[in-house]
Design a protein around this nucleic acid. Structure first.
Lengths: 114, 114
DNA sequence: TTGACATATGTAGATTATCTATATATTATA
DNA sequence: TATAATATATAGATAATCTACATATGTCAA
């Protein structure tokens, strides 16, 4: 058994960590970025994201700091930690293994490349 | 919004339908086949599979019949219906769209082909 | 022959990820 | 000045999977 079952649902964590691996972001921005980068396929809900960010911070994968934007609005930025990068790397490998396994069942290489 | 959220967890249904699209099978056999075809990546639990088969039968995606094996053991075989094949086709398209979207976020073509 | 393990199906309850709904507050726009 | 967009947050509902348990037969080794 190699694949974490939570990958079945838990790809959101990986995607968030990937965004933060590129640059620091605040929550609302992540929702927008995820939507753009996936060509509108992902519309992550605020009610999903914010609790997840809190959990990831508690697990030492992220740190946060507040910053005031030009318009005086306060935003809470998140930054990925070394631990978070390690986790991201693991999750990416699991994702590859998982999709490969599904594609094997769906008809091997012929499906993946069809 | 194009992708069914249940795909995040719900790829099991698609895999079961795919197996039955090739040949009729009984539950225990599906667990074995799924494990073999995925190179041991998937170890579907009986407690997950049997209730799922019952649900799919209720939703008219499968039909079942009992058959006695050589060793006198009774097995419950499942057969995919026309409706089930239609559902499988839809799920496969969703799966492709979903993995493409994740791979886009993970770094586009360079990730998928790496 | 008996005990253990594999085969075979099944249900109940727990866990967990995500969603909807709601709340609050500020900024931009019509 | 009302409405929409921005921005963060929590509570409760939903759904998929898991663990644990139950039952029964077949096979094989000690």
């Amino acid at each position: 058994m190699a694949i974490d079952k939570s990958l079945l649902t838990g790809s959101t964590t990986m995607l968030i960590l990937k965004l933060l691996d590129e640059t620091n972001m605040y929550g609302y921005q992540m929702i927008e970025e995820l939507r753009k980068k996936s060509n509108n396929a992902f519309e992550l809900k605020a009610g999903t994201l914010y609790p997840l960010l809190h959990t990831l911070e508690q697990r030492n994968m992220l740190t946060s700091y507040e910053e005031t934007a030009d318009n005086a609005r306060v935003r809470k930025y998140y930054s990925i930690t070394k631990n978070g990068r390690k986790h991201l790397k693991e999750k990416k490998e699991e994702w590859k293994a998982y999709t490969a396994a599904v594609n094997d069942v769906l008809g091997g290489a012929s499906f993946a490349t069809a």
